[in-house]
Nucleic acid binder design. Structure first.
Lengths: 248, 248
DNA sequence: TGTTCTATTTCGATT
DNA sequence: AATCGAAGTAGAACA
């Protein structure tokens, strides 16, 4: 059977299901009134409330409330789950070492416990990352400007590594900074520091700084103009259509 | 009733439960064989597999496999959930604008659907953050060094805001950078830039730079010494015991 | 294993 | 709403 559920179980029955699921590598969810206690890299306490607890066979634990994308408490993959009953509470404990961390969930009342058999071989294919944008430009440098010739990626400078380094049609050095989404003033400052650093290396020449991103904020655009930096609107392939239209 | 569960439901019945739950602000989980499609800030596709889908009343959607701490796909709070049946599939769609994002989950077979009523008024109390470290130092400046007198937090400089600014027992300006955990070379660089910026402001005086953290890497320690910067081993209160012992 | 960097980062605070 | 920085960041790539 792929899914086994107990509704308002006695702790004893819930414990049997959970322990078996842990042993057999099944995923478990538990929902009910509980308290949570964490100690490790930091330390936290959570008073009684209704939460959904997910225990994965890879050692992950998630404690979710009805709000927010992130769990209110959790344990990363690689932990070891334990379950027990004490003082009329069902307790789920997850532990790891290096760094030493411990998560305790104590259920006063269990509304539901479920064990799942999971089969999933599919891999996620994600497009629209900065890596995709870099690939797109290296495949077709003219998408930045005709005559652009990339010579290096992640080129080291005094201000840190530059995304793409190269020359323009006239042989002037070009520093290209990539951002996969709409950028603010900080990206302009970053590019400025790169250009200044590369300027030091090429005393005679006039180094160009180009920011490649789907779009920029008004303030960032002003900063770029102010500092003689350039902006090329370009999105990663497929995703990131927010670059085609800039609302403001 | 606090929890309602359907086991291997017909899509029609599942749809009724899910739509009601969305309307009444209940949390929903669905488990079964599904495909997932996302388009927005990036773009992704996920082939058929067994996943646990969580829809929260605040607009969050999580798609979890049996591995990893993070969901394989998700939608942040503030989205709107919709459900429907088409081509013999139960579809759950979550949408938001600004930025425009869409997540589609299509169930070929549903093993289980559950709607939860969640009550949770408890707040998480967390200790061991950088904020706690700052509080600890402001409460007892001598924990950095005897005679240290903080005069400002988040003090602006040309290189950005400094965590804590003050004077030492001899009246020399002190720039204090806080890190809640073991730090690498980047923190040394950051501190150096702050000290250089403050040095400009106090031409006659010799500005001191102090990095406060549980511990440092070897390379970072070398950089600090090289640049006449100082390190004070100090952890946030309670959590972060890894600072008391530095292994290497 | 430790270090460094990216992220559909998320999240909160502040302007 | 835009911006900035911390996070028990997580996760991957690399030495």
């Amino acid at each position: 059977m792929s899914v086994t559920t107990l509704h308002r179980p006695a702790h004893r029955d819930a414990l049997a299901l959970v322990e078996t699921a842990f042993e057999e590598g099944r995923m478990v969810t538990a929902f009910g009134r509980c308290t949570v206690d964490y100690d490790g890299r930091a330390s936290s306490d959570l008073g009684p409330g209704d939460r959904l607890v997910v225990c994965k066979p890879d050692g992950t634990v998630l404690v979710h409330t009805d709000e927010n994308r992130n769990p209110v408490n959790w344990q990363p993959p690689g932990c070891t789950h334990h379950a027990g009953v004490r003082d009329g509470r069902l307790r789920i404990r997850s532990v790891r070492s290096s760094p030493s961390e411990r998560l305790d969930v104590s259920f006063r009342q269990l509304e539901q416990v479920t064990a799942y058999e999971v089969e999933d071989r599919s891999d996620l294919t994600l497009t629209g990352s900065e890596e995709d944008l870099r690939t797109r430009i290296l495949d077709d440098p003219s998408s930045v400007e005709p005559g652009f010739r990339p010579t290096a990626t992640e080129r080291e400078t005094a201000a840190g590594p530059v995304d793409i380094f190269g020359d323009d049609a006239d042989g002037r050095p070009m520093v290209v900074e990539l951002k996969r989404r709409r950028v603010g003033p900080s990206a302009a400052g970053q590019l400025r520091r790169y250009v200044e650093a590369v300027d030091e290396e090429f005393p005679g020449e006039d180094v160009r700084g180009i920011l490649v991103a789907p779009s920029v904020t008004d303030r960032a655009a002003a900063l770029l103009t102010e500092q003689d930096l350039e902006f090329v609107p370009l999105s990663p392939p497929d995703g990131g259509e927010d670059g085609s239209v800039t609302h403001d």
